[in-house]
Design a protein around this nucleic acid. Structure first.
Length: 490
RNA sequence: CGGGGCGUAGCACAGCCCGGUAGUGCGCUCGGUUUGGGACCGAGAGGUCGGAUGUUCGAAUCAUCUCGCCCCGACCA
């Protein structure tokens, strides 16, 4: 095994796969298309969960849990929804195995066939709205603001670790409202939560917008999304929020009595982000030396590495480290003192770099004499020697600076890779090179489809903040009122 | 589902074409020397070569079948 990672410039997807595996984030499992998330990777996911969960609670949501299995008849009820997910459903048909009478092993017991097949949830609208029918009678029961953290299964033909796996972890919010306006407001609010999370926690700038009808969630009236640009110039949909109208209320007959005493169907939203965010995090910031983590999501924010020759040296260094360690910890910073004698300091430097620990402190005998400590930044790969005096305060500031710096870096990258394009030739050329391509579109599904077929680029979204600007469609030449975001996507 | 690749020690791979004592690097164990950017020397341990069947005196190697994973495409968060 070579020490260095494959370089991004040589083979981006190999770099990604190696990084995921070698930074101990996850590995391919023995089960096709599924991953094992390893402790270090899961620790990052847990931090994401914590931050998001706090934000959901702060906006009035509560967690609950619904079944993994969806009776087929439930899934069928909302027609578009059913059609959209049918192709990727895992189906449970039997409830028992038995020993093979003809030999070794187990076989499915043909006598244990389910009268109705169960679908392993690809998403939970169906089960949840079937349940909401019993929860919602009056306007007083609304809004109903529920979230669940769970696993789901979508039987994809081609999988990529974190970005698209057959089973993945996510959260799905499912809300019911008395009015259309309130449901739309919720849809927008939660997209805003995702955008804030991406930018403030993941240091990932995102474009907020609305999907075109062909990219819409099956069963939704409108799908909003956040889109991020990865370092290889491809877009990654990082979160979605759906305004579901009354589609599910009608399919599951969820009616409430309004203040005027009339029966009305409830208005719905759903929204989700998944372990795909792990992929976004990795691809947005990391470099050829390994992972680069934003301090707010790093399981270990600061690592202290002693540099010593003898056990006596180590004892002295440890003694000096102790107050520094405690002071840093007291600021709520997660700090690790790695006095493991089994690895050398040089090995540790490389290892923590690979794992993306934002700040590394090195303390050796020379530092003890001088009252100094070495501070190394993961994001810039720079290091400086500074006085131990006030080090905790400095680290605290430095972590914030790193959080900001990697955001700025990602934003700069996105800006440098976002292009206004007005002719079809330029469009094709730029899509080939990568990046977000802002172009006029005539608004028809036919044009969208044709562009996709010819260039593999899709409309990532129609940005909320796009300026009204008359132009002509880059493909058809027809009139267009604003630019939309095109890119090749994961 | 189509195309390609791979399956040999914990990991990465060579050996296969042309059948004949199962190898290399990393990791692991023990001993020693080292230690401010992935240390070095020495001695060890570790394998039903993915599985089944066949050909053969003899199969990791040839043939047939089969299972699994990865990559590329169509589908998709």
């Amino acid at each position: 095994m070579s020490k260095g990672l494959t370089k991004r410039s040589e083979n981006y997807s190999e770099w990604y796969n190696e990084l995921v595996e070698r930074a101990d984030l996850a590995q391919h499992s023995a089960v096709k298309g599924c991953m094992v998330i390893k402790p270090y990777g899961f620790a990052i996911w847990e931090k994401m969960q914590r931050a998001l969960d706090d934000m959901f609670k702060a906006t009035g949501h509560q967690n609950a849990y619904f079944p993994l299995f969806v009776p087929k008849s439930f899934l069928e009820k909302e027609e578009e929804h059913a059609e959209g997910f049918a192709k990727e459903c895992a189906v449970v048909t039997h409830y028992r195995l038995k020993t093979n009478p003809d030999g070794k092993g187990l076989i499915v017991d043909p006598d244990a066939k389910l009268t109705e097949e169960l679908i392993i949830r690809p998403t939970s609208e169906a089960v949840i709205w079937n349940t909401y029918k019993g929860w919602i009678q009056s306007w007083r029961d609304l809004p109903l603001l529920i979230n669940q953290w769970c696993n789901i299964v979508r039987w994809e033909m081609r999988t990529r670790i974190f970005l698209r796996t057959a089973e993945f972890l996510w959260q799905e919010g499912h809300t019911a409202h008395a009015t259309e306006a309130e449901a739309i407001e919720e849809t927008e609010k939660m997209l805003g939560v995702y955008a804030t999370f991406a930018e403030e926690w993941m240091s990932l700038p995102v474009i907020q917008g609305v999907k075109t009808p062909s990219e819409r969630f099956a069963g939704a009236i409108d799908t909003y999304c956040i889109e991020a640009l990865m370092q290889d110039g491809k877009a990654l949909q990082s979160g979605t929020s759906h305004f579901l109208g009354q589609n599910f209320a009608k399919a599951f007959d969820v009616k409430f009595t309004n203040k005027e005493g009339q029966l009305e169907y409830a208005w719905a939203t759903s929204w989700g982000v998944s372990t795909r965010l792990m992929g976004a995090l990795i691809m947005a910031h990391s470099d050829d030396n390994g992972l680069v983590l934003p301090p707010k999501l790093a399981p270990i924010q600061v690592v202290i590495v002693p540099i010593y020759k003898t056990p006596e040296d180590l004892a002295k260094i440890s003694e000096a480290v102790n107050p520094i360690f405690e002071e840093i910890k007291s600021k709520g910073i997660s700090v690790k003192y790695d006095d493991d004698d089994k690895q050398r300091s040089g090995w540790k430097f490389a290892e923590y770099e690979l794992k993306g620990v934002p700040v590394r402190l090195g303390l050796g005998s020379r530092d003890l004499e001088n009252g100094t400590i070495e501070v190394a930044r993961r994001d810039t790969l720079t290091k400086e020697s500074r006085s131990v005096e006030g080090i905790a305060e400095h680290i605290s500031d430095l972590l914030e600076e790193i959080q900001t710096n990697i955001y700025d870096k990602a934003l700069k990258f996105r800006e440098e890779n976002t292009f206004n394009v007005d002719t079809w030739d330029d469009f094709k050329a730029q899509i080939e090179k990568g990046g977000f391509v802002m172009a006029h579109w005539d608004g028809t599904a036919e044009t969208e489809e044709a562009i996709k077929n010819e260039t593999k680029a899709t409309i990532r979204c129609i940005p909320f903040n796009s300026i009204e600007q008359a132009g002509t469609c880059v493909y058809s030449g027809k009139e267009s009122a604003k630019r939309v975001v095109f890119a090749k996507a994961y």
